[in-house]
Design a binder for these strands. Structure first.
Lengths: 123, 123
DNA sequence: CCGTATCCAGCGGGATACTG
DNA sequence: CAGTATCCCGCTGGATACGG
């Protein structure tokens, strides 16, 4: 058993887990964090196989959760840019140990899961 | 864009995400980490509303992933105990920053999601 | 006690076509 | 360009009954 005071108590996650465990969600957070801001179709292109319906749903989830910000420039053709809120950025940082764990683990097991990686250089 | 060298590159998660994002998975990892070892029906009782079929599936996932260990004592009636492997334990620790982030965030938004918490004291 | 077998409902996500 | 509308499929997870 565990109490709320235990730093490893998982109950705090209940609210946000359905959002961030959705397919593509962490990917998009990572992408936005890295690029600063992106347009709808930019995200589509970088994800590769996400349908517009799915992307629109997930962005809505992330917007509602306050993790992502949406800026609409009232132009024609329309331009909309998505970026991380401060909350989203801190989430991204909070995920680092998990990513590190996964990376170490992959190497230990000689997994080669990197083929599907996004490959452009850091800015 | 991002590279594999970026500690925030999410591609490493691809292998494990389907496993740990399943309903109950993180809960069970947290539970086992806290109790040391648990029997099948103990887990059921602590989760409250998990069906045996679901639990058995998730345990299988976690076993295959090498996060959980299964010890069967060949007795009658049967006794089986589940516990975290070293890998599972390190995953649990890697989740701490995420949990901390979620906790801070809940407090910031005055969420009261703690009602559903596991409530026995720490050992 | 520790599961598996079976059946079923809901929904997450893909493909595609369409609109403002 | 930035989505929405529709349709459809497969998977996940619940309930229940049963087996070793």
């Amino acid at each position: 058993m565990q109490t709320v005071s235990d730093p490893r108590c998982i109950c705090c996650l209940r609210g946000i887990l359905p959002t961030i465990s959705r397919k593509w969600a962490i990917c998009i957070i990572s992408l936005l964090g890295h690029s600063g801001q992106m347009r709808f179709n930019e995200i589509v292109e970088h994800c590769g196989h996400i349908s517009p319906k799915t992307l629109s749903e997930i962005l809505k989830d992330l917007l509602d959760a306050g993790l992502v910000e949406r800026k609409s420039f009232h132009e024609i053709p329309p331009r909309v840019e998505y970026s991380l809120t401060e909350d989203g950025k801190s989430l991204r940082e909070a995920l680092v140990p998990l990513l590190k764990w996964a990376k170490d683990r992959n190497q230990r097991y000689n997994y080669s899961l990197f083929a599907s990686c996004l490959q452009a250089p850091d800015p």
